[in-house]
Simulated scan of single mutants.
Amino acid sequence: MNIGQVKQAVNKVISEMRERPIPVGISNHHVHLCEGDYQTLFPNQPISVRKMLKQPGQYAAEQTVTLVGPKGALKKVRILGPLRSQTQVEISQTDARALGISAPLRLSGHLSQTPGLKLVSEHGELELPHGVIVALRHIHMSPLDALIYGVSQGDYIKVAIEGSARRTVFDQVAVRVAPNMALEMHLDTDEANAADLTNPDAYARLLPTGPCRFASKR
């Protein structure tokens, strides 16, 4: 086999791998806590694992809190572990309206000029000054996945949800790349409802964007 044939074979394999269905995870409202805030809410109580998540090392904890806003409250909101360097609350726009706050659409960790609210547990409470967001829809990828799909950290792409009763196309889907990430698209509950994601076999597929396959960074 000559070099041209090898390249042709490799390109064929990469093209086939790009057509892999991408698992879709539905992200319900949840809280990431820093160590200090966790100790305020759960003093002398180690965080405990309820269920491991698809992303390596991440899990849903047994511990839950109540979110309290100006207009209402959301009970039994799950804590996700492990603990982080800063506290972040992720909700949907429907949740934001129920709580009576205006939560901006942000990537995880981008918390400047975000609203706060009160977090209450059975053991304590705290006023969070900021850190509440509606998470921007995104796809987690390893560096190998990103190489196969031809994307980079910070790219925004177009994705079709297939296998559901209502085929839906989402634009401006953020690409997040890290060595410890597993291939998975994350949508919040509002987006999942819009796409009628009741079928566990539904999946995401990347789509062309304009004259080139992927949108530019922003």
Results as ranks from 00 to 15, higher is better:
P82G: 04
R84M: 15
S85F: 15
T87G: 10
T87I: 06
T87S: 13
V89E: 04
E90Q: 02
I91Y: 15
S92M: 05
S92Y: 15
Q93K: 14
T94L: 04
D95F: 03
D95Y: 05
D95M: 02
A96E: 00
A96I: 02
A96N: 03
A98Q: 12
L99S: 03
I101M: 02
S102A: 08
S102R: 12
A103H: 00
P104D: 10
P104W: 06
L105Q: 04
L105K: 09
R106G: 05
R106Y: 10
L107S: 10
L107G: 04
S108D: 05
G109K: 02
G109H: 06
L111I: 06
S112K: 12
Q113L: 13
Q113P: 02
T114D: 09
T114M: 10
T114N: 06
P115E: 07
G116A: 01
G116T: 09
L117G: 05
K118W: 08
K118A: 01
K118E: 07
L119T: 01
L119P: 00
V120N: 00
S121Q: 08
S121N: 10
S121Y: 13
H123W: 13
H123N: 07
H123K: 13
G124T: 14
E125I: 05
L126Q: 08
L126D: 09
E127S: 12
E127Q: 08
E127N: 03
L128G: 03
G131V: 04
V132T: 03
I133R: 01
V134A: 03
A135V: 11
R137D: 12
R137L: 07
H140E: 08
S142W: 12
P143C: 13
P143R: 12
L144W: 15
L144E: 04
D145N: 11
A146K: 14
S152F: 15
Q153D: 11
Q153G: 08
Q153L: 11
D155P: 01
D155W: 12
D155S: 06
I157N: 00
V159F: 13
A160Q: 08
I161A: 00
E162S: 11
R167C: 03
T168H: 10
V169Q: 02
F170R: 11
F170Y: 15
Q172Y: 14
V173M: 09
A174M: 04
A174K: 11
V175L: 08
R176V: 14
V177Q: 06
V177K: 09
V177L: 10
V177G: 01
